[in-house]
Design a protein around this nucleic acid. Structure first.
Lengths: 240, 240
DNA sequence: CGCGATTTGTACGTATGTATT
DNA sequence: TAATACATACGTACAAATCGC
């Protein structure tokens, strides 16, 4: 019946959910009727619904249908969906937040046993070791401690680091970022954290550790992002 | 060639990756040859590979093949994949960690405006309000502050809370847990945290906030899990 | 309580698109 | 440019869970 023309099926369905056309009191139309409406295959409909489901808007139940979840109000704080913190760039675009990067340290090192144990780089590999402070809303909010494999990510310099190393990789290197494995923990603040971060009365930091791999399966980065309490939220949706 | 018999294709492929039969120097056999080996459809092979990919063991590249990622050593600490912290039960089974639950508070309340704003339950709904302390390795490690919709999760009592409310829901109620939306943040420790947790010199806690929904789309739970620093790791894998 | 009817989940086969080599 | 290999899309069939009669 209705025509999607430009908009994707996913976007159209999402709009209907957030507008309340599809709401908690009802279920989505069956896949069969959406197929009839949009004149596409079952595959396409299921793909769109999966996307809604991954966002936590709906939930599919075998034998029953697709249920709309009660909506929870979203918080106003700096809201990270984990995928984005790597290049805090995105924050800048999306929300109007003042952001600056300060290069606190920039050197080249060779991996020794200690560093190998920590970063999981092999001993002997040359690295760029960079420390950067991210100022957000006039606070020193994040301390990034980066190690890049200099063979895989060559020719970094402070100017590049001041901008975005990820942008540099994407634009100038013939290498693709494939996977990032992350660990998030809370740690007692260290000397270096007190030096660079506006911790206020807090004596702890969040520590997000990232291991990044290219599409040859090789690890090219180890990074610790130390961030101050009370300013960051990490979201996740778990389906059963 | 090889026969899978009992084992799933996923398990067989995973074993080959961790054993190093498939390793960083090579790529996985093509989907075509795996189809020939296991005598199943392309769909089945792709499903197994997707599972490996979701675990961060391999990465598929269009036109190239399926790449094995360099392996990163796993840490020994209490390692949570976010899905499990809800029922800390699972920790008990997997690792040998001593665990006890202490009921610190148990009452029934009606949602007022403040509580509604915080929990996103509607005003007037009756709730069970429970505070529990989780002792892990002889430390008060987690303070759980639970609110359950008493209409959807009726007849909770302290004995049930001492065990596992999720087990109770699954076994005794005709309700299915569908989705949990989570937020993780770091907060300055509160009076109640100092009372119940072994914070040591730390003055911050992790706060994992959960909104849980049943398969009718209704929110049945709001929970804050306050946990001490240095003892928990949250893992996540991001694919590009 | 059981038995269809409904609805989503899984699986297969095939064809075409697209990035890599 | 051609061959290779994964990604996307369609159609079909059957399995499994749910719901109403």
């Amino acid at each position: 019946m209705a025509e999607t023309t430009n908009k994707s099926i996913y976007q159209e369905l999402k709009q209907r959910v957030v507008n309340g056309k599809y709401n908690i009191k009802m279920r989505l139309p069956t896949e069969e009727s959406l197929i009839d409406e949009f004149h596409v295959s079952r595959y396409a409909i299921r793909k769109a619904i999966k996307q809604l489901s991954d966002e936590g808007l709906v939930y599919s139940v075998k034998g029953k249908g697709v249920v709309v979840l009660e909506q929870t109000p979203q918080t106003q704080e700096i809201n990270l969906s984990l995928k984005e913190i790597n290049s805090l760039q995105t924050l800048n675009d999306a929300e109007d937040i003042s952001r600056t990067t300060i290069i606190a340290d920039f050197q080249q090192v060779i991996v020794d046993e200690d560093l190998s144990h920590k970063t999981s780089f092999a001993i002997g590999i040359p690295l760029y070791a960079i420390k950067r402070v991210r100022r957000i809303n006039n606070k020193n909010a994040v301390l990034d401690i980066n190690y890049f494999n200099a063979q895989l990510v060559p020719d970094i310099n402070p100017e590049i680091a001041k901008d975005s190393i990820y942008t540099y990789i994407k634009k100038n290197l013939d290498m693709k970022i494939a996977v990032v494995k992350r660990q998030l923990r809370i740690e007692h603040a260290d000397q270096i954290d007190y030096e660079h971060l506006n911790l206020g009365i807090n004596n702890c930091v969040g520590n997000m550790i990232s291991f990044a791999f290219n599409d040859d399966g090789k690890q090219f980065e180890y990074t610790e992002s130390h961030f101050i309490p009370d300013n960051f939220i990490f979201n996740q949706i778990i389906k059963f």
